[in-house]
Amino acid sequence: MLESRELTKSFGSVVAVDHVSLKLEAGHVYAMLGPNGSGKTTWMKMAAGLIKPTSGQILYEERPVGVESRRHIAYMSTEPYFYNWMTIRDVGRYYEDFFEDFSMERYKELIGRMELREDMKTRTLSSGMMAKLKIAVTLARDAKVYMLDEPFNGIDLLARDEIRTCILQFASEDKILLLSSHLVEEMEAVADRAIFIKQGHLEEIVDLETMRTEYGISMADRYRQIYGHEEVTSNV
């Protein structure tokens, strides 16, 4: 279980995440939603141990995240981060060197499915290819938690289906999947729970099928209800 308690992060006078308390349970795929700048990325980076909270706590299996939790939490950031001398093969070897749960076999298979080649240099990849590489290398880990920040960004329509399939392939009862995206429609069927974050606050967590049954509305509808009066610039 991944849990944040009154988690807060401010950068100078800007409060990016504001007293967010939430629990993510194994066996669910969560869609983390909110316009750009609402705090999704900062929350994820704190869960990945890359950013230290200003106050509050973030716990994995009841213990503060850190070196140990990184063994079990696979995080994919929006931005590319590989060393510029790396080829796609080198990226795999790097993960193999540092993550016990990484499978080179699975990586090679995913790379093939994403139509990438191992000898490609990361420096020369297009943004779409880079996005696929990040997903492939992250999903090649057999982690307990996957946090994918904007997995559909920069990826064309056809490849999105492939990525959705890959994500679903690795979802299971003992795993937590957390996906953030401003492409809300892409996540309707994949996620079963939605976390709405608004200006750093947790707005609500809903069970999507329950919401559809009881209110007859989609995740996108709820998104519009919550953020409708804000300027919708992110819903491209």
Binding site: T165, L168, Q169, D192, E209
Partner: peptide
């Protein structure tokens, strides 16, 4: 269950349901 989820691109819990 998992194959059904992948086939339709739906959440595994939905597939189980």
């Amino acid at each position: 269950g998992r194959d059904l989820a992948m086939l339709y691109g739906i959440n595994p819990n939905t597939a189980a349901r």
